[in-house]
Amino acid sequence: MTTSVPAPLAARTPPLAEPSAWHGISLIVNGRPVTAQVEARLLLSDFLRDRLGLTGTHVGCEHGVCGACTVLVNDEPVRACLTLAVQCDEVELRTVEGLAPADAPLTPVQRAFHECHGMQCGFCTPGFVMTTTALTEQDERPDEEQVADALSGHLCRCTGYRNIRRAVCQALDERFGE
């Protein structure tokens, strides 16, 4: 058996007209190495979507309130719209596309959102899924207050949150036991 090296992920370059300085960054995105030229002002959310084609990370407000763009930077959920791509040199980054390979079943967190109907239009869902994934990766089960605190960092306009809370609870039960 040979160990395969993950193939690099190709990035588009800034438009030639871009007036601000370009910088090289190297990072790991969903387990794959990326080296890219980015303009200083490029938001991480736009880098992921427009340069890497990872459109699962959604942009809902661009001022850090709605949480749709939440991704994991070094395993911690952060706002991609409040992070500059240039600040992500040498980080390890995960997006919703990195959770379950195309041919693999959904992760327990993704499955919980499906089974509990914790999603309707699906636009805010990747953000919720990334935050919930981080909760399930903690060493100990987060208490109710921590879960509430984490979920309040996301807006959903469709579900009324009830089924999202159920989904998160199911995912935590599955990870930590009931």
Binding site: V73, P77, V78, R79, T131
Partner: peptide, 12 residues
């Protein structure tokens, strides 16, 4: 500090 925004904000 815990009252600042949300964990997603406080991580950065």
């Amino acid at each position: 500090i815990g009252r600042i925004g949300h964990p997603q904000i406080r991580h950065r």
